[in-house]
């Protein structure tokens, strides 16, 4: 799928987007105010400071490159790890760098989970990065950042 934008129907929206590229979707009416900084601050809080030492790798956040609608964006996450009493994934936190607030969701696993994977659906107010951090039972953290392009729909209805 191409991400080329072609303005067809909506004359007023056309002028607005051409001028200022303002993104509004159904789920949110106020302007986005989460930023990479507020997202990082939230992650610091959620991980009790652990986020600072997070490494790349292990965690995979699967999001569409282009979301068909920002109201319902499927997300799948998985963390590469054994799931035993000695070594397992405790939590995965998802935060937003472009929603009205950075909070999205946290997922808490146990060795009985068998696998550290989960799937859900998220609201994304505009094109942005979604940051995921995995907290392991040994106190290590892994981070991954995924960009999702959220397009302004053509047909309201």
């Amino acid at each position: 799928m191409t991400n080329m934008k072609v303005e067809v129907l909506d004359r007023r929206q056309f002028l607005v987007t051409a001028g200022a590229a303002a993104a509004f979707i159904g789920g949110f009416s106020s302007a986005a105010n989460a930023t990479p900084e507020t997202a990082a601050a939230l992650l610091k809080e959620l991980t009790k400071g652990g986020a600072a030492g997070a490494m790349e790798g292990k965690i995979k956040i699967d999001l569409p490159e282009i979301a068909e609608n920002g109201n319902t964006v499927p997300v799948k996450l998985s963390v590469e790890s054994p799931m035993t009493a000695d070594s397992y994934v405790k939590s995965v936190h998802l935060v937003s760098e472009g929603n009205p607030g950075p909070e999205m969701a946290s997922f808490h696993f146990t060795p009985a989970s068998g696998k550290a994977n989960a799937a859900a659906r998220m609201r994304l107010a505009k094109t942005q990065n979604v940051v995921g951090i995995a907290e392991m039972s040994d106190g290590k953290f892994y981070v991954s950042k995924t960009q999702v392009k959220v397009t302004i729909g053509g047909c309201g209805g």
């Binding site: 934008k5 929206q13 159904g26």
Partner: peptide
């Protein structure tokens, strides 16, 4: 099949209604 702004236009078929629209939630 062509884009209307960022959406792909369909033939407007209604064989799946009532439809769950992501936009309507």
């Amino acid at each position: 099949g062509k884009l209307i702004r960022a959406n792909t236009l369909s033939e407007g078929q209604i064989n799946g209604f009532p439809t769950y629209r992501l936009k309507w939630q």
